[in-house]
Amino acid sequence: MSDPFLQVKDLRVQFPTEDGVVSAVDGVDFAVAKNKVLAIVGESGSGKSVTSQAIMGLINRKTAKVTGEIRLDGEELLTARPEQVRSLRGKRMAMIFQDPLSSLHPFYSIGKQLVEAVNVHQDVSRSAAMQQARDMLDRVGIPNPDRRLKDYPHNLSGGMRQRVMIAMALLNNPELLIADEPTTALDVTVQAQIINLLRDLQREFGTAIILITHDLGVVADMADDVVVMYGGRVVERGSIDDIYYRPEMPYTWGLLGSVPRMDAGRNERLQPIPGQPPSLIRLPKGCVFRPRCAYHELVPGNRCDTERPDLLPVTPEHAVRCHLDPAQRREIAAERLGVATADPAMEDK
């Protein structure tokens, strides 16, 4: 990962509430290189959306405390003037959201909303902006773009709306695109289309993408690197192969175990992760995943209850936050998921 286009270091987002401080994001580090796709995976409440909004500068700094470092192409964003961050939004970094219907303004036509996005950052005439909008709609596979420009969001189907959102995000040729669960609100058949579209566009434009999702199938399709988040922290980080073939964190095992697999036996059941994600107000003193972890007893001396594990590297690119002994982790992973043994890299074990 030389030349990271986006570098996030020790990012913390805290919301003071009446019940106490909610640490939505607690010391997150990652980097995205140009041309690469980074997936951030985790359950709802794991802090992945807040992380992405912090990068975009969409967190209200009056109601939340954001600390750490966010560097976009070397430029520090957290200490930059809001006006400076605003001028980058939509231009160098753009974002698409989960629910395209509620994310588009119901009272303005598609054309108006797209033209507006062009004109914030480009000093071009209305008709030139309209032409750009039309071309971009065409590019994202919307049939009859001239007619669609005059339509309102409610006239379009869910998939078409998400294509409009993607078009809107790409209008100013951003170098970073953050896709916050872009397929969650869509039909399964449309999900694949949108992911394919994103992948094609990523290749065409060379955009760096942060893909936020809880759908590991989508991740396998697109991502180069994966960050697994839990309770506002990164619990495992690695290349796509690390995460799928050599996962070492019990939470990652849980995520992988709760996805249906084509090669699984007919009678094999999915293994959901028991329990609920933690409340981010009073986090357990030890490992945040401890209350839901089936393996904490294997760690001697109750360390899971008393000591926060650090995010430690297994290989230069693969890091895990877990007290379990690395050899033990690999053994359990092989047994649970039957993946590690299938991988040649693990044969010398």
């Binding site: 939004r89 939509g90 629910d99 994310s103 303004h105 119901p106 914030v120 809107m168």
Partner: peptide, 24 residues
């Protein structure tokens, strides 16, 4: 959500509230 989208586009706060907010 569409107010968040307006901000994500890079619109000025004035436009976000005065146009997108007031209209709805």
């Amino acid at each position: 959500d569409y107010i968040r989208t307006a901000r994500a586009k890079g619109l000025r706060e004035r436009t976000v509230i005065g146009k997108h907010g007031l209209r709805a």
